[in-house]
Amino acid sequence: MKTIKAALLSYGMSGKVFQAPFLELHPGFELLGSWERSKKLIQEDYPQVKSYESIDEILASDVDLVVVNTPIDTHFEYAKRVLEAGKHAIVEKAFTTTVAEAEELAALSKEKGLKLAVFQNRRWDSDLKTVRQILLDGALGEIVEAEFHFDRYNPLLSPKQHKETVNSGSGILKDLGPHLIDQALYLFGFPKAVSADIRTTRENSVVDDWVDILLYYPDFRVRLKASFFVREPNPAYVLHGKNGSFLKPRGDVQEDDLKVMKKPNLDSWGTEPLEKEGFLHTEIDGKIMHGKIPTLKGNYYDFFDGVYNAIINDTVEPVTAQDGARVMQIIEAAIQSSKEKRVIDL
């Protein structure tokens, strides 16, 4: 098996929790190390790797793939430097801060013949995989409406300054919003129009922390909501079709397991507890179905396997730069809609 040498541009939560464990697990990757500006932590978890002093040191090395997992407002600058240096790239969500930046990176990667993937790991959550299977099976009939939530109860401001100061990458719309938007586009395609309401609700907050986006499709609607003031959670996924309904609480265990340093695997990883199963009430071939539905396993490994195959076998990236640009189109339309209080045609 050919080996892809990979490096991270940060070893905060994203690198430590979501990326390094899967780069270590996949036999096709060799983790070289991470750029670490102050705290030198990566060698505590991976003694064989290097703590780089700068992005220049990484780009001057024999690295093949660089993970751009720095604050959102730096993604464009660093991803462009990575591509210009002839390296493949994975860029954390939100991909960029504008559609123009996303399209420039997409064009640059194509010009250079390099692979550029957006880290939308939530496509491989157990929840979303199960919802997708319900839709593929046609269990609900023609869809009438869907509502996705990414809610938390956390009224306190984040200690991470880049998340709580006004900059081009801050706010819930560009933090949790890209997960919800990407999932909707992945399942339903690109909508015809967008309306949105974006608010600031936490005391002393200067960035948006509540969002309600409505995507207009020809025959159905999809609502996307995120808030920090949901103490009693709504179902994360609610879908109503002409034959029935499916409700699914958020139950993917991967983030919580990774935070306590559990090592991912290809066997039992991503298995939800039974109490998090979704509820299906529908009619199929004249038979009423009314009860819990087993949840598919989630595994972020599949994203990295997709990146490996894209680089080695020249397949399409698991989440493309164009996918990232489409998410940014929705975000820009949502900002315009909230500001002008009107529906924005796409």
Rank of each mutant, 00 (worst) to 15 (best):
K263C: 08
P71D: 12
P155F: 01
L105G: 01
F279I: 09
D127H: 04
S54G: 05
L346E: 02
S170L: 08
P218M: 04
R250M: 10
V144P: 05
I335P: 04
P27C: 05
I311F: 10
I172N: 03
L135R: 08
A117Q: 09
D56S: 10
R221S: 11
E36K: 02
Y52R: 03
V343S: 01
F279L: 12
R202E: 06
Y308T: 09
S38W: 13
D208I: 08
M289H: 14
T315M: 15
V319W: 07
S337K: 00
F190S: 07
K276Q: 14
L114K: 09
E104K: 15
T3G: 03
K248R: 12
A107T: 10
I55Q: 09
I134W: 01
Y308Q: 05
K160I: 15
H179N: 07
E332S: 02
K39A: 15
E30D: 14
P178T: 01
K16A: 09
L280M: 05
I181M: 04
V343W: 00
L25H: 10
Y52G: 00
N299L: 12
I312D: 07
I312G: 02
F29R: 09
A146Y: 00
N265A: 13
D56M: 02
H75I: 11
L32R: 13
L247F: 04
F246W: 01
D151C: 03
G171D: 05
R152Q: 05
A94I: 12
D45R: 12
H149T: 03
I344M: 08
N299A: 14
G33H: 01
P21C: 00
S205K: 06
L59M: 04
V66T: 06
W35M: 14
E101F: 07
D209G: 04
V91W: 04
D305I: 08
G28F: 06
E203G: 11
S170E: 06
P159C: 09
R152G: 02
K297Q: 15
T3R: 08
I181H: 00
A325P: 00
L239K: 04
G324K: 10
F188G: 03
G324D: 13
T282E: 03
V99W: 04
D267V: 15
W210S: 12
Q43E: 13
D197T: 15
S227V: 06
